[in-house]
Every structure is written in C-alpha cells, then in structure tokens.
Design a binder for these strands. Structure first.
Length: 596
RNA sequence: GGCCCCGUAGCUCAGUGGAUAGAGCAACAGCCUUCUAAGCUGUGGGUCGCACGUUCGAGUCGUGCCGGGGUCACCA
C-alpha cells in the first residue's frame, strides 16, 4: 500500500471514529506538501468543513491529533495552516520502505490483470523511408505498450504495413523507367531510401509531363489525368489487383528492399512488433460485412452501385464504404481488420497509435462498427498525437521537406560523439564501447525529446538547432545514473555488496526525506501514465528524480558520510534512485550507460 | 461554415478545483585539492488569449468571443 493510499484510508477511518460520518475518496483531497511548509502530505480540509460544521482550524487539529495518536508508527507530526492539515511521516516508515525496496527491480510494476491489449503503431507506407513524424509515432507506441505491460496487461505490439495501392505503383513505374536494373545492393543504398528515391523521381517526371501538356493548351485537370506516367501507373494497379505475375514479382522485390531498410531502422531505434499485418492481405476483409449491412438495411446503395452509411444521426456525415466498382476503400478493410484483431487475439482493448489528422476517420470507423453490431468498437482507442512540423512549415515528402529518420538519428549520435569527445571522460573505452555509448546517448536525447511533451500537442522541430544534451533531456537523466554507478563502483571496492541492514538511523536530512518520498511515488506514476497512455508523465517524473538526486549529490557525500550507518543508508538511497531511473527510462525505450 | 485539438515567462513545456503558478533553454552572478561540472546554487523575467458565470476557492469547470492548427475525399 502506498503512502498516499494509507493516509487516505487512515483519514476516512478517523473521520468515522471522530464524527460518525463516512467520507469517500472524492470528498477530500490529499496533496504533497508544498516545499515552503513542513510536512510530507497535506489533507485539504475545506471540502470536509461544510458537512462537519467545524472550523478548518478545529477540524485540522482534531484530525491531526487523532491520526498521530492512533497511527503513531506512521505519523510523527502535524501542523494546521489555514485549511490545510500537513502531516509528517515517521522516519522509520521511510527507512523501512527503502530497506525493503531499494534492490527490487520489479518495483512499481503491477501483477497481471489478465487483460490483453493490442497496440498498433508505426504503420508506414512502403514507397518511402521513415521520417521524424514516424519516429514520434514509433517511440510513443512502443513506450505506451511497455507502460501498459508494467501495469499488468498482456500487450501485443503490431503494425499494419500499407504495402499496396497507387503510391506503391508509382515507385515501381519510376524504377522501371529510370533504374536500368539498379538495386539497393548495386548502388550501396538502404532499400527504403532507394525505393523512396524512385517515388521522388516519379513525382518529378509527372510534374514535367503535366507542365508539358498544359503548355500544349490542355486544362490542368485533364493534364493531370492524362499524363502518360500516371496512366501507366493506373494500369499497373489494375494488373496488380488481377495478380499479373511480373507486376507481382516486381512488387514483391521492391517491397522486400523496403522491409530490409525498415528492419535496419527498427533494430537501431529499438522498435519491435509481435505481429505485422500487411494491407495486401487485409484489404479484401470487410467486404462481407458490407453485404451483411446491406441485407440488414444498415447500409444503402446509390444508383452507381456504391455503398454508403448514414451517420448523420450521430452528428457525422454519410460515408462511402464500398466503391461503385465493388473495390474497397480504406475504411472497408479497417472494419474487417478491427474484427479480425479482436477475434484472433481475444482483445480487451485495441489501441491505434495514429496522428490526430485521422481523428475523424477513426471516429467514423467506430460508429460504423457499432451500427453493424460489433460492440467491441467501444474498446477501440485512438491514441492520437500531434504532427511534428518544422520551423519552415509542414513536412511534405513530395516536396522533399522531410526530416529523414535515419539522418536525424545519425545526427544525434554524431552530436553525442562530439560532446563526449569534448569532455574526454571515457578515453579508455574501446571503439565498440564508444560507439555503443554514442548510440545510447544520441537515441536517448532523441527519444526523450519526442516523448517529454504531451502526445496530443503538435510540436515544432527546428532542424537548425540541434537537440539539447543539458537540462530537461535524456542525457541529463542518463548522466545521473552514470554518476551513481560511479559511486557504487568506488564504494563497491570497499564493501562487498550493497545488501545490509540499516537500523537505528535518525534525523534524516530534508533532501534524504524528499528523495525517499519521491521514489515511493513511482508505482503511482506508472499507473497514471498507463491510465492516460502518456509517456510524458514518466519523462517528467524521471527528470525530477534525477534533479533531486543531483541536488542531494552536490550537498552530501555517500562515500564519505558522517558514519557507517549513514553511508549504508545513502548507498541504498543511491541504488534505488539508479534503479528507478533505469526502470523509468526503459519504459521510454532509453538505455542507461554505466559511464559517460 | 460544422465538429475536434491547442493558447501559461523571450523560447520549449509542467501544472488530479486548493496555500505566494513551476521547470528547462536563453541572460546574469557564484561553485571543481573531496563520490563524473552532460552537474549544483542564486538573480531577473507572468493581465495563465479575452469576457462573463459556477464555487468558500478557477491556470484548471461552464458559456461566449479572439488567435493558431486539424478535419469534414470513391487519399491513406
């Protein structure tokens, strides 16, 4: 039981005893005591004052007195200021807590709750490489999945690869036209970048042809339709759908190049998936439900044969669910895939990590599912996040204004190398150890930067300014961990191990108290982050923990503590701080270095 | 135009209806003969977009405006 929940139940019990009135959790608040007052936790009395018909001062005094008398093992003091009852926690509670948990690596994690949750994230197209926006999606999805695991859920990480459609054919046509049989191997380029280059070439050629046609006097719209390269591409899409062998073969080959490129990036940034769905396998799903919906008169057909659903009763529009020629639209397959996910994996929840530009789309999807009688729609959650924009505006792959994922990671790693070299603290590292450190720090800075803000806020990235390594950053937190490891290495030579009993300690210093109380909150933080599906809660916590530890570090020595007892105590405090930092950063996908 | 999100220090952001609104960056001033200075300590910097309302109490809740963004495709 956490400190705060203990105080809560002790308070409700006391109120029953004192005033014969039963209050629930919502009837009063317990906050952390502000630093300018003495105490650890504060009961806000105003809400109780009314129904108890007492003055805040009298109530505070009576309640404080009662708590102190009846829970003497837990409380050591109280004071009342205005309507606030500040409570001090007995020191042995703090040292016992530290003694018990400082070495428990599963501290903060919940036991299984027998819930299964699917988290779908990343979900790229196979015609171009990943960019900064994908990184936000990937880090967010991965982190939320891990946070949900820590809360006791079974989590299945998935990705739906958008591997078919007109955009893929564009790259294929351009390759046929311009590549002369080149492959990623023959030109020494990563497969996804290689294919992406042909997507760019397609657009260049297309633009050229449209301009030519317009110069010949054709109107814009007509020129766009009749550009030869576009006509070829459309024919290729039809051939693909018919299963024409040479088209399928080329499609397989080029997608294979892209997948190898993606896998390389995923591996480097630490993304992993339990299952991957491919749109080429799922795009026909959902057609059955359209038929069913038509029979039940939930859907209706227009004259041209296209099928629609009327959502005006829930404040949305009429939406197309099947084209006139019987082919699927995006939402058609989404209906089928959603059902398949829930049935195959017996999900309690399905989370879609998708940009906030698709809020409407997913809302529509859920409404359609509900109308078709698929009640699991209520267990679909859209974890939406804001777009990453540049100072120069939106990223547009067609205009080449994207920040490439591999490039930005390279840059971050290079920056880590530069800082490390300047400081010169790890000159004895081998080449491999150095490279590993640069990756740890560069990716740490990158991930922390993208995860420390509320997911739903859009963020503006300035490519001119490199991401910081000081202050509210990944490397700051990593640095704190490395410092603690340094202490443990040093003291570890003198002590054989760190498991010892600390007893009879008294007079904890303010920073020591604060640190323990801060560490004790970690399980609640994980719970909040899971509940909100928000890794920024973890990032903020872990940063504040590091800051607090650094203050402690600057003020007090561990190795040269006043006496042995104090030294052991501070070692425990340091071990636990390091452990929680490592655990919290791991939930963000960030590794910690032993030295930096 | 309808619906959704955002608006807090020069910049980037925290802030479960509670005490004098907090961090980081940037600026300035200090701190390495003592466990890693990627650090610590301090100073300056605010009409919490605006106006009403609810409440003992509003940055937080409600309504209406203003500003920014998204979306309302037989695109994904």
């Amino acid at each position: 039981m956490s400190f705060i929940s203990f105080i809560r139940s002790a308070t409700t019990n006391s109120l029953v005893q004192l005033y014969q009135q039963k209050f629930s959790e919502k009837d009063f608040q317990i906050n952390e005591t502000k630093p300018e007052f003495t105490g650890d936790y504060t009961i806000v009395l105003f809400a109780l004052v009314k129904s108890l018909k007492k003055s805040p001062e009298a109530l505070g005094k009576e309640l404080g007195e009662y708590l102190l008398k009846n829970y003497p093992v837990f409380f050591s003091g109280y004071n009342v200021i205005k309507g606030f009852l500040n409570l001090e926690i007995e020191e042995t509670q703090l040292t016992d807590f530290l003694q018990k948990n400082h070495n428990d690596v599963s501290f903060g994690k919940m036991p299984s709750n027998h819930q299964t949750i699917m988290v779908e994230y990343s979900s790229p197209n196979t015609n171009k490489p990943l960019h900064l926006g994908h990184l936000r999606n990937i880090f967010l999805g991965w982190s939320v999945a891990e946070i949900l695991k820590a809360n006791g859920n079974k989590v299945i990480k998935t990705s739906i690869v958008n591997d078919r459609g007109i955009h893929i054919c564009k790259s294929m046509i351009a390759w046929q036209m311009f590549a002369n049989g080149a492959t990623p191997g023959s030109v020494q380029e990563k497969g996804d970048h290689f294919v992406g280059d042909y997507y760019v070439k397609f657009n260049e050629e297309y633009k050229k042809e449209v301009t030519q046609l317009m110069n010949d006097g054709k109107p814009k719209e007509e020129s766009e339709k009749e550009a030869p390269i576009m006509k070829k591409t459309q024919k290729m899409l039809l051939d693909w759908e018919k299963g024409k062998p040479d088209v399928r073969e080329l499609w397989k080959t080029m997608n294979g190049w892209v997948y190898r490129g993606f896998d390389e990036t995923y591996k480097r940034i630490g993304a992993d998936f339990d299952h991957t769905f491919y749109e080429s396998n799922t795009y026909l799903l959902g057609k059955d439900f359209v038929q069913e919906g038509l029979q039940k008169n939930i859907l209706f057909k227009k004259e041209d044969g296209s099928v629609w659903i009327d959502l005006t009763d829930v404040g949305l529009d009429e939406k197309l669910v099947l084209r006139g020629d019987g082919t699927s639209v995006y939402i058609t397959q989404d209906i089928g895939l959603a059902k398949q996910k829930f049935e195959e994996y017996h999900l309690d929840k399905s989370i879609y990590v998708v940009g906030d530009e698709q809020l409407y789309h997913i809302k529509v999807l859920k409404e359609i599912l509900l109308k078709l009688g698929m009640l699991f729609a209520d267990d679909i959650f859209h974890l939406s996040y804001g777009m990453v924009e540049l100072t120069s505006g939106k990223m547009k792959s067609r205009e080449g204004t994207v920040v490439d994922a591999d490039d930005i990671v390279d840059e971050m790693v290079a920056t880590a190398e530069k800082h490390t070299q300047e400081l010169g603290k790890v000159k004895d590292f081998t080449k491999e150890e150095l490279q590993e450190l640069y990756e740890t720090l560069g990716l740490g800075a990158m991930k922390f930067y993208l995860l420390r803000v509320d997911p739903k806020k859009r963020m503006i990235f300035n490519p001119e300014e490199s991401i910081d390594f000081h202050g509210f950053t990944g490397p700051f937190v990593q640095y704190t961990y490395a410092r603690i490891q340094s202490i443990l290495r040093k003291v570890g030579d003198e002590e054989s191990g760190i498991s010892f009993e600390v007893s009879g300690l008294s007079n904890l210093l303010p920073l020591e108290r604060e640190l323990i109380i801060f560490l004790e909150k970690y399980p609640n933080i994980i719970w909040d982050a899971g509940n909100e599906m928000d890794p920024s809660i973890i990032a903020n916590y872990v940063f504040n923990l590091a800051k607090l530890y650094n203050s402690f570090y600057a003020e007090h020595s561990v190795a040269n503590a006043e006496n042995e007892e104090k030294k052991h105590f501070r070692l425990q405090l340091s071990v636990m701080s390091a452990m929680v930092i490592k655990s919290g950063l791991r939930l963000l996908g960030i590794k910690v270095p032993e030295r930096m």
